[in-house]
């Protein structure tokens, strides 16, 4: 029979070793770089929760391992006959569960509540915003930025395919609806996704803080080529964006074709929602 103390020591050493090892492991599988003002909320909530859950999982593993080795088979120790029906047993179980609930679940609930109300689902309606309309279709992303007139659904709208350009440091608000089946607008670098449904408008807001090229992903199964429904999101410096926007708006206006119904998929901005 393995003495408890030695086993405990083994478990502690194992955990001490496994802790950094798993931390290193998690590091190798960390999400892509966070470029948004809000994304850190997801990351920190994930890591804090992971640490708490690893403690719980260590306790679970400890009981499983110790019981399996120490309390097994023909060992002659006294079996602890206990039905666990006394009020005391119930109280202990309730207290443990309630503590886990208030600490782990409570932390998640509190932070989630803050996150969605302060950031993810707190959609701005006015102020200095980059407004984008998105209409995904099988299997491409169509983006629409207002031209120099600042209005959607007009002749100078900048319409791009699989190429979203936005300025850095300015809050983005996107409205989207799908042309055919359900798609999901997923920005791994922003830690957010929202479905684009046919027939109704959904929204996403974030503030990019880093320039560069990032990937846009469709996260909802949308058919045969779902796997390559990919777009680029180019976050430009304010000056670069202004230059590009001026030019693109000009070309959009000059290339505008009244007859081309396919290109007129925009809608009036739903400001009050």
């Amino acid at each position: 029979m393995i003495p408890l103390r030695r086993l405990l020591a083994a478990v502690v050493i194992g955990l001490l070793g496994a802790g950094p090892a798993s931390a290193g492991f998690l590091d190798a599988y960390k999400p892509p770089v966070d470029i948004s003002k809000e994304g850190h909320r997801v990351d920190s909530l994930f890591y804090v929760t992971t640490i708490m859950l690893l403690v719980l999982f260590a306790i679970l593993s400890y009981v499983l391992v110790v019981s399996s080795i120490r309390h097994r088979g023909k060992s002659s120790h006294h079996v602890h006959f206990h039905r666990g029906h006394a009020t005391r047993d119930l109280t202990i179980a309730a207290v443990i569960s309630a503590s886990i609930f208030f600490v782990v679940d409570g932390n998640l609930l509190y932070n989630s509540y803050e996150d969605i109300n302060d950031a993810f689902w707190n959609y701005p309606t006015e102020g200095d915003l980059t407004r984008v309309q998105i209409m995904p279709q099988q299997w491409a992303w169509r983006f629409r930025l207002p031209g120099n007139d600042g209005q959607f659904n007009t002749a100078d709208d900048i319409v791009t395919l699989n190429d979203l350009r936005i300025p850095v440091d300015k809050q983005v608000i996107a409205q989207m609806q799908s042309a055919d089946v359900i798609h999901s607008f997923f920005l791994p670098n922003v830690r957010q996704k929202i479905d684009a449904n046919p027939g109704s408008v959904t929204k996403m807001t974030f503030t990019p803080l880093q320039t560069g090229d990032f990937e846009v992903v469709c996260a909802e199964m949308c058919g045969l080529n779902h796997y390559k429904m990919r777009a680029e999101m180019k976050v430009l410096s304010t000056a670069d964006y202004a230059r590009w926007h001026e030019e693109a708006s000009f070309w959009a206006l000059s290339g505008f074709d009244e007859e081309d119904a396919e290109a007129h998929w925009g809608w009036d901005w739903e400001a009050n929602e």
Partner: peptide
């Protein structure tokens, strides 16, 4: 499952 019950982490 806890990560998926929380809206904040589930959005990612």
């Amino acid at each position: 499952g806890l990560y998926l019950a929380s809206i904040s982490t589930d959005l990612y």
